[in-house]
Amino acid sequence: MRDLKQTGFTDRLTAQQEAKKALLARFKPKAAAPDPEFDKLAAKRAAEKEALRQQHELAKAEIRRQKAEQEAIRLEAARLAEEESEAERRGARKERKALTKAEQKAARDARYAARKARTR
C-alpha cells in the first residue's frame, strides 16, 4: 500500500496519542458551575444530622438515668431487707431475754426435777 500522505512512523504515533487523549477527554467529568442550592441543602442535611445526634444523646442520657434510678431502688430494697432481718434477729434475742426471773426460775426448776426423776 502506498502512503499517499507521506506520513512517517512518528507522525502516525503522535496522531494516535492525540486521538487517545481526545477520547479520554470525552469521558472526563466537566467542571460544573457551583449550585447555590447545593450549599443550602448541605447545611440543611448537617442541621438534621446534628438534631438526630442530639436526640440520640438525650435518649442515651435518659436510659442511663433510668438505670441509675433502678440501681438505687435495688440497693435501697436490699438495705431495707437487711435492716428487717437484723431487726428480726434482735427481736428474737430480746424475746429470749425477756423471760422474767420467775419464768427463768420455773424453767430451771423443771430441768432440776427432770434430772432428779432420771436418777431415781
Rank of each mutant, 00 (worst) to 15 (best):
R2C: 12
D3F: 01
L4C: 10
L4P: 13
K5W: 09
K5T: 10
Q6S: 11
T7Y: 12
F9G: 05
F9L: 14
D11I: 01
D11V: 02
D11S: 05
L13C: 06
L13Q: 10
A15V: 02
Q16W: 02
E18R: 11
E18A: 05
A19K: 12
K20T: 06
K21Y: 04
A22N: 08
L23N: 09
L24Q: 09
A25M: 04
R26G: 08
F27L: 11
F27P: 04
K28P: 00
P29T: 00
K30T: 03
A31R: 11
A33V: 07
A33R: 14
D35K: 03
P36M: 06
K40E: 13
L41H: 15
A42L: 09
A46V: 03
A47E: 13
A47N: 09
A47M: 11
E48C: 03
K49M: 09
K49D: 15
E50Y: 04
E50H: 02
A51L: 03
L52V: 11
L52Q: 15
R53D: 14
Q54C: 06
Q55C: 06
L58A: 10
L58S: 12
A59S: 11
A59V: 01
A59E: 15
A61T: 00
A61K: 04
A61F: 02
A61Y: 00
E62K: 03
E62I: 00
E62F: 00
I63P: 00
R64G: 14
R65L: 01
Q66S: 06
Q66G: 10
A68M: 11
A68D: 15
Q70A: 13
E71G: 07
E71H: 05
E71P: 04
A72M: 03
I73P: 11
I73S: 15
I73H: 13
I73T: 15
I73E: 15
R74E: 14
R74N: 11
R74W: 03
L75G: 12
L75C: 07
L75P: 04
L75T: 01
L75D: 11
E76G: 11
A78G: 07
R79T: 05
R79M: 02
L80T: 05
L80E: 14
L80N: 13
A81K: 07
E82K: 07
E83I: 01
E84I: 04
E84K: 13
E84W: 08
E86N: 13
E86D: 13
A87G: 12
E88H: 06
E88D: 09
R89D: 13
R90G: 07
R93L: 10
K94G: 14
E95S: 13
R96H: 10
A98W: 01
A98C: 09
L99D: 12
L99K: 12
L99H: 10
T100W: 00
T100G: 10
T100N: 09
A102Q: 14
A102M: 12
A102K: 14
E103F: 00
E103G: 04
Q104Y: 04
Q104K: 07
K105T: 03
A106F: 01
A107S: 08
R108A: 10
R108P: 02
A110W: 04
A110I: 01
A110F: 01
R111T: 07
R111Y: 05
Y112R: 12
Y112A: 13
Y112F: 08
A113E: 14
A113C: 07
R115D: 10
A117Q: 08
R118Y: 03
T119R: 13
T119A: 14
R120L: 08
